[in-house]
């Protein structure tokens, strides 16, 4: 089966993936971080590398590499009254587009999804913009998809950044 054959044309699966990704990003915009974390599998991870072709979080440093345990620590911190980098807190809007979904050979429950995104963030001085690509490793379960990996590759992932206080 070639890669092209695996691509889902407009289909119930692509529609479901699109709805899932839209919701995942809305949970971040609404700062519903616990609900957002629940989207991940028990061994799931959220990863933002510093290299465009980075293969793993161990090959080079990353902006984010949160497994569920680290996610819990980060989310707990985001609720703390003295999380200085979020006083005042960020308002964000994620725009997600160019969503594609493909089957994963040998993994009947697996779906890989790709999307392009722009995130606008406003805190207390100026708006900031992030752009890049999302790559999701999803697993189907009885109650919908779960995220095994969300990889966020910013178009400028190797640049120096001012503080990033929330998930991209």
């Amino acid at each position: 089966m070639s890669a092209a054959d695996r691509v889902y044309p407009p289909s119930p699966t692509l529609d479901a993936v699109t709805a899932f990704v839209n919701r995942e990003c809305r949970l971040l915009d609404e700062r519903r971080f616990d609900d957002w974390r629940d989207l991940f599998t028990e061994d799931g991870a959220y990863w933002a590398p510093t290299r465009h072709d980075q293969k793993s979080p161990e090959e080079a440093v990353s902006l984010f590499y949160d497994d569920r345990v680290t996610m819990a620590a980060r989310i707990r911190r985001l609720k703390h009254p003295d999380v200085h980098v979020q006083v005042p807190e960020s308002r964000t809007v994620h725009l997600v587009s160019n969503i594609e979904a493909e089957a994963v050979p040998g993994e009947p429950a697996g779906v890989r999804a790709y999307a392009a995104f722009v995130m606008a963030e406003y805190r207390h001085t100026e708006p900031r913009w992030y752009a890049g690509r999302y790559e999701y490793s999803l697993r189907r379960s009885e109650d919908g998809f779960r995220i095994a990996l969300k990889k966020v590759t910013l178009v400028n992932c190797n640049a120096p950044f001012t503080s990033i206080g929330v998930y991209l």
Binding site: P57, S62, L63, F64, Y65, T70, A73, T162, S163
Partner: peptide, 11 residues
């Protein structure tokens, strides 16, 4: 390498 993402990266 991995732990720097939690302690010293921009995020």
């Amino acid at each position: 390498i991995r732990s720097l993402a939690a302690t010293h990266s921009a995020a």
